[in-house]
Design a protein around this nucleic acid. Structure first.
Lengths: 253, 253
DNA sequence: GCGCCGAATTGACCCTGATCAAGGCGACCA
DNA sequence: TGGTCGCCTTGATCAGGGTCAATTCGGCGC
């Protein structure tokens, strides 16, 4: 949790942490810097981006990063740890909207209502970069690449929202969920085949709109069928292609 | 379909059409001009916005506005008529992602992948304003209000995507669907209690992840219970509050 | 060590909504 | 006028997954 990590697989520690960054290099896995660097922006622009960022955390498991109704002032990039977003209806039932890994951004759905429409809760010890949104918008007007990056971020999340839209069997849902997590870890440079599930079975079930018992049963069956190895929350994908066969139609490409 | 219509209820014709606009006033219900005017932009800026817009249509029911895989170059504001977006998986099964009414915008989910990830199909005779997206991005960098408006549009759609996320009963889904349509018609100045369903029962069912038979049964029951009056695709909400009671937890606020 | 508590697993039963099937209604057309 | 085709409705049956309940597991504090 303390040392810098570059792309590549993680041999040991299950809790990935994004590069901590420094004044000039910024966070290596930061959701924004990469886009800017790629576009050839130089120190002055990056410095401006760096000005409006604020490192916050740690948040302990169960702590809120923001709550439903809080006025929207900033978006948060996950620097380390995992977050779930959720809505709680007036009957007190929870609905998990998503899970966010290091390098991913939360709070985008608050731009329009100008208040957070959901809670964000840390699932383990979590750290963030906090970006003032008004400042970021202003900077985006002067940095086309940043504006483009924001548009892309928003559009990307639109796409993933429709992922869960289909009506699919419990097997398909769980398989697609595991593969999607795998892909997102891989994108950030972590192992695609071995990772830790930071969320409980109940959270997974809630997110997939299944009962916790069903998730448990499906995972047990997947293990029996040789698709995965799972012990508690430690997961290994033994046969990603087999899983992909199950999740067909739910995943893109 | 030929005359201009202002806010207020529709006595007769079931197919609402947004204000046609002219060179200086732009489309009255246009998804963008209102934001700009409200922010005090003057003719020159509006003229620029007007330059990058192109009126397209009519599209007949069943015709495609864009198809999955088409390169992304523009977004479309519905000027008149109704559209559904849908994905078709490799087994040929259709998944309806959403319905779009006059004043609403389609294509935002294509920004990130740079290709349209879904089809857009006209449900009745439909007209659009086509906005070149590169041109619009460039203009947004010089017009903060336009940039903000785009951010808000994207964020708003994120919110509505999570609306369907919950697992709810068939009754809740159908009730929430009718109320949501009602609210969107009301926002655009049409009647909130009487409107025409441009989409088939099958499309509604697919969107709500139910069987067409279930939708039919629920609507029949809602009529028997006095919540609605429905004949074919002509709908009247007799007891919106009663429906809201059913849709509780699914709808915001 | 013991005991507690929440998470996870496993089993038994049941309900909602899907599926299959038949029939009605309206639009369109020759 | 009759015929065809799609869409919608209604009925009968069935199964996937929810619910309830009991048990086990693992972590933590004392």
């Amino acid at each position: 949790m303390q040392s810098k990590q570059v792309a590549g697989r993680l041999p040991g520690p299950p809790s990935p942490m994004a590069d901590d960054g420094d004044a000039s290099r910024f966070c290596g896995t930061c959701a924004f810097s990469s886009a800017c660097i790629a576009e050839g922006y130089q120190k002055p622009e990056l410095a401006e981006l760096h000005c409006l960022v604020e490192h916050v955390g740690p948040f302990r498991a169960g702590e809120h990063i923001f709550r439903t109704g809080d006025p929207f002032r900033a978006i948060f990039a996950v620097r380390g740890g995992t977050v779930k977003t959720r809505m709680v209806d007036k009957e007190g039932r929870e609905q998990v909207l998503g899970f966010y890994l290091p390098g991913e951004v939360i709070g985008l759905n608050a731009i329009y209502p100008e208040h957070f429409p959901c809670d964000a809760v840390a699932l383990d010890t979590a750290y963030f970069c906090r970006f003032s949104f008004p400042a970021m918008s202003a900077l985006a007007a002067r940095m086309p690449a940043l504006q483009k990056h924001l548009f892309r971020l928003l559009s990307k999340e639109l796409g993933s929202a429709s992922l869960l839209a289909g009506d699919h069997s419990a097997d398909e849902r769980v398989a697609a969920f595991l593969l999607e997590l795998s892909g997102r870890y891989a994108t950030r440079g972590f192992s695609a085949t071995r990772f830790h599930l930071s969320m409980s079975r109940g959270d997974i079930a809630n997110y997939l709109r299944l009962a916790a018992e069903t998730v448990s049963r499906v995972l047990t069956r997947f293990r029996a069928q040789g698709f995965i190895q799972i012990e508690g929350r430690e997961l290994e994908l033994l046969d990603p292609l087999g899983l992909r066969g199950l999740g067909q139609g739910l995943l893109p490409q």
